[in-house]
Design a protein around this nucleic acid. Sequence first.
DNA 1: GTGGTCTAGACCACA
DNA 2: GTGGTCTAGACCACA
Lengths: 125, 125, 125, 125
Amino acid sequence: MITIDYKSRVPIYDQITAGFIRLKTLGILKPHDKLPSVRSMASSLGINPNTVQKAYAILEADGVIYSVSGKGSFISDDDSADAAIKEAAKSDFKMAIEAAKSMGLGLEELKTLLENTFKGGDKND
Amino acid sequence: MITIDYKSRVPIYDQITAGFIRLKTLGILKPHDKLPSVRSMASSLGINPNTVQKAYAILEADGVIYSVSGKGSFISDDDSADAAIKEAAKSDFKMAIEAAKSMGLGLEELKTLLENTFKGGDKND
Amino acid sequence: MITIDYKSRVPIYDQITAGFIRLKTLGILKPHDKLPSVRSMASSLGINPNTVQKAYAILEADGVIYSVSGKGSFISDDDSADAAIKEAAKSDFKMAIEAAKSMGLGLEELKTLLENTFKGGDKND
Amino acid sequence: MITIDYKSRVPIYDQITAGFIRLKTLGILKPHDKLPSVRSMASSLGINPNTVQKAYAILEADGVIYSVSGKGSFISDDDSADAAIKEAAKSDFKMAIEAAKSMGLGLEELKTLLENTFKGGDKND
DNA sequence: GTGGTCTAGACCACA
DNA sequence: GTGGTCTAGACCACA
């Protein structure tokens, strides 16, 4: 469901939050779907429960999930959270454009890159 | 010439290296132009000289500048460095596309964003 | 009669006790009225019977209800319990005032809020 | 500066965040004022640095402070964060009014309580 | 079993 | 020195 790159400089808890946000925005996880428990998630990923706990706490603070003590964590149906996330993604994309532009890349070049990358599944590490 | 966002999570030395790379790729700084000394750069930015030193060391390792003992640091005329930098910028842009896609943004939406952002806003946040 | 917010951080048994106390202080439930059985309450709310049991035990310890073995639970006519509950409500209200004050809200602003909220909205979030 | 009630059911990190928010909204701490370091705060309160770290992380996520790695944490000048906090305080106050009302307390009684509590410094534990 | 809080302590990047 | 991340593990309330 979610894969972690343990060598990455991106914190594990960020990779987890990004993973669930992605699964939710893509519609793979729907409102009120249950997430794995903190403990099972931790053991299946081979990491410390505290790290998963931190990721879940962030997701809850951001309104992406809600937690019911003693029951588990669930995908929230808060649309405003989704909207905020999409806005953040747009903002990141814009900053990437500005950065590329300031490095001397041209509009046509970026357009081609955009289409090829979006259609093909070029993976970057 | 180079502005630093002290509150940003991006390390200051990264902001400095990115700044010089940008000035070079845009042609504002040309080969053999002299960079400010470590000390003057540090005092004008109000930061630790060690931080500027680290940025210059990275730029030199990447072939963007070269140092002459007792004289200072200068913009290099190494084209391969420029090419490598553009490739890195492309790679960053691709990753931003993948991220935006996985957050549910569509190709047309991204195209519009690309054109508007490239033409319009010179604002950096 | 009593509604539960399953997403709330307030424990379910607290929501149940608060609900019955409210119904009693408002006079909707009168002394010697019968409460639903633990099992029917649990099944109609879709929660664990242990949770209802805990709520009833707290209400009984506080003198709000009394239990008759084999017969069920009933609203008590103990006035001292009511008085204690009102005192607790007052204390909570005072703490809310202190908190609001320490966050920089002024007396006039709070007065207006008090009047509007008391008269107007019956909405619970 | 900030006092902790170790016996309280309110998490220590919440007491810390509330303390700094209070000091900021009251104007005692001003934008760009430096907070104690995580370590010094922890040792002076006699608690684990992780707990302070958690409080600071929450304050930063809420825009109340900003952290500069290697330098320290500082009061933010983000007005929107302040506005959000005041709104939250208002919302809490409203809920307290609704609760008091549903427990049978009258408007005049609450008004008197409000004035007395606001003026006097009646402390409740 | 499930999430939430906290301690103890290690290691890292950054300034 | 300063904040940030992570592990290991304990204890608690709740269901």
